[in-house]
Amino acid sequence: TTTITTTNEEDARRIATEWKNKGYTVHVEKRGTTFRIEVR
């Protein structure tokens, strides 16, 4: 599992989409101002 964190919502969406397009399972969680993107 790879975890990526960013405070930028646009980055979070872009990163999540990129990983999904590669065939990975992506889970995005917002904690306060931080977005945690888990890639499996």
Rank of each mutant, 00 (worst) to 15 (best):
N8L: 05
T34E: 14
T2E: 06
R13S: 08
T6W: 03
T6F: 05
E38H: 14
E18K: 08
E9V: 08
T3V: 15
W19G: 01
R13H: 12
T17D: 12
E9K: 08
E9R: 08
K20R: 15
R13W: 15
G23V: 01
T33D: 15
T34R: 08
W19K: 02
R13L: 14
E10W: 10
V28N: 01
A12M: 08
N21P: 00
T7P: 07
W19H: 03
R14I: 06
I4W: 12
I37K: 00
I15A: 03
T2R: 14
G23R: 02
E29Q: 09
A12C: 07
I37D: 00
I4L: 09
A16W: 06
W19P: 00
T5N: 07
R31L: 14
T6I: 07
T25E: 13
G32Y: 04
R40G: 08
T33Y: 09
G23E: 02
V39N: 01
N21C: 09
T1S: 11
T7N: 13
G23Y: 02
T25M: 11
K22D: 03
E38L: 14
R13F: 13
N8P: 01
W19D: 00
T2P: 06
E18D: 08
W19C: 02
V39I: 15
R31I: 15
T25D: 13
V26F: 02
V26E: 00
K20M: 14
G23A: 02
T17P: 00
A16D: 01
G32Q: 04
R14Y: 05
N21T: 09
R31Y: 13
E29H: 10
K20S: 11
R40V: 12
T1F: 14
E10R: 09
R13N: 12
T34M: 14
T2K: 12
R13Y: 14
E18F: 15
T6G: 03
R40L: 12
K30E: 05
T25S: 11
A16S: 07
R13E: 10
E38V: 15
H27A: 08
E10V: 09
A12K: 01
T17A: 13
T17K: 10
E10M: 10
A12D: 00
I4M: 07
E10I: 09
T25P: 04
R31D: 14
R14E: 05
V26N: 00
T3N: 06
A16H: 03
G23C: 04
V28K: 01
R36A: 11
E9Q: 07
T1L: 13
W19V: 02
R36H: 15
F35N: 01
T1Q: 09
D11L: 11
E38P: 00
R36L: 15
T34Y: 13
K22R: 13
E9L: 10
T17F: 11
R14D: 04
R40D: 07
T6A: 12
R13T: 10
R40M: 13
T2Y: 15
K30M: 09
E10D: 11
I15V: 06
E29G: 05
T5R: 06
A16N: 02
G32T: 03
R31C: 10
E38K: 09
T17S: 11
T3S: 07
I4C: 07
E18G: 05
W19E: 01
R36K: 10
I4P: 01
T7S: 11
K30F: 09
R13V: 12
T33P: 12
K22W: 06
T6V: 14
I37G: 00
E9Y: 13
R40Y: 14
V39D: 00
N21R: 11
F35P: 00
R36T: 14
T3H: 08
R36W: 15
T5A: 05
V39W: 04
T3I: 15
I37S: 00
V26P: 02
T3C: 13
K22G: 04
G23M: 02
Y24F: 11
R36N: 10
T25F: 12
T17R: 12
R36G: 03
E18Y: 15
D11T: 10
I15S: 02
T25H: 13
A16V: 11
I4E: 03
G32E: 05
N8S: 13
G23L: 02
K20Q: 12
R36D: 06
I4F: 15
K22V: 04
R31G: 05
K22F: 05
V26T: 04
K20A: 13
R13D: 08
T7F: 11
Y24A: 04
R14S: 06
E9I: 11
I37T: 01
G32S: 04
R36F: 15
A12W: 04
H27R: 12
K22P: 00
W19I: 03
T34S: 10
I4D: 01
N8W: 05
K20E: 12
I15E: 03
F35A: 01
N21A: 12
W19R: 01
K20V: 11
T17I: 12
G23F: 02
W19A: 04
H27S: 12
T5G: 03
E9M: 08
E10N: 09
T6H: 03
Y24Q: 02
V39K: 02
R31V: 15
T33W: 06
V39G: 02
I15C: 04
E18S: 08
E9D: 05
G32V: 03
T17E: 14
T34L: 14
T34P: 01
E29L: 10
V26I: 05
A16Q: 05
R14W: 05
D11K: 06
H27L: 12
I4T: 03
I37F: 01
E38F: 15
N8D: 10
T7V: 08
D11I: 09
V26D: 00
N21Y: 06
T25R: 10
R31Q: 13
N21G: 07
R14A: 08
N21D: 10
R40E: 08
K20F: 10
Y24W: 06
T7L: 09
T5L: 14
E18T: 07
E38T: 15
Y24K: 03
E10F: 09
E18R: 08
T2N: 08
R31S: 12
I15D: 01
Y24L: 04
E29R: 10
I37L: 05
A16P: 00
T5D: 07
K20H: 09
T33V: 10
I4G: 01
I15W: 06
T2M: 15
E29D: 07
R14V: 06
N8M: 05
A16K: 03
H27Q: 08
Y24D: 01
V28G: 01
E10P: 05
T3D: 04
I37N: 00
T2I: 15
T33I: 11
V26S: 01
R14F: 05
N8A: 05
D11R: 06
G32P: 02
T2A: 09
V26R: 00
Y24S: 02
V26K: 00
T5Y: 15
G32M: 04
H27I: 14
T2D: 05
T7R: 09
T2Q: 11
T2F: 15
V39M: 05
K22T: 03
I15Y: 05
R31K: 11
F35H: 03
N21W: 06
I37E: 00
E10C: 08
V28W: 07
A16G: 03
E10H: 09
R31A: 10
K20L: 13
T7Y: 12
T34K: 08
A16R: 03
I37P: 00
T34W: 13
T6Y: 04
E38S: 12
H27G: 04
I15R: 02
T5W: 15
K30I: 10
T6P: 02
K22N: 06
E18H: 13
R40F: 14
I4N: 02
T34A: 08
V39H: 01
V39T: 03
F35C: 02
T6L: 07
I37M: 02
E10G: 07
W19S: 01
F35M: 03
I37A: 00
Y24C: 04
V26A: 04
I15L: 07
A16F: 07
G23P: 00
E18Q: 08
E9F: 11
T1V: 15
E9A: 11
G32L: 04
H27Y: 13
N21F: 07
T7K: 09
E18M: 13
K30R: 11
H27F: 13
I15T: 04
W19Y: 11
A12V: 05
A12H: 02
T17G: 08
Y24H: 04
T1K: 09
T5K: 06
G23I: 01
T17M: 14
R40W: 14
Y24V: 02
K30S: 06
N21Q: 11
K22Q: 07
E18I: 11
D11S: 07
I37W: 00
D11V: 10
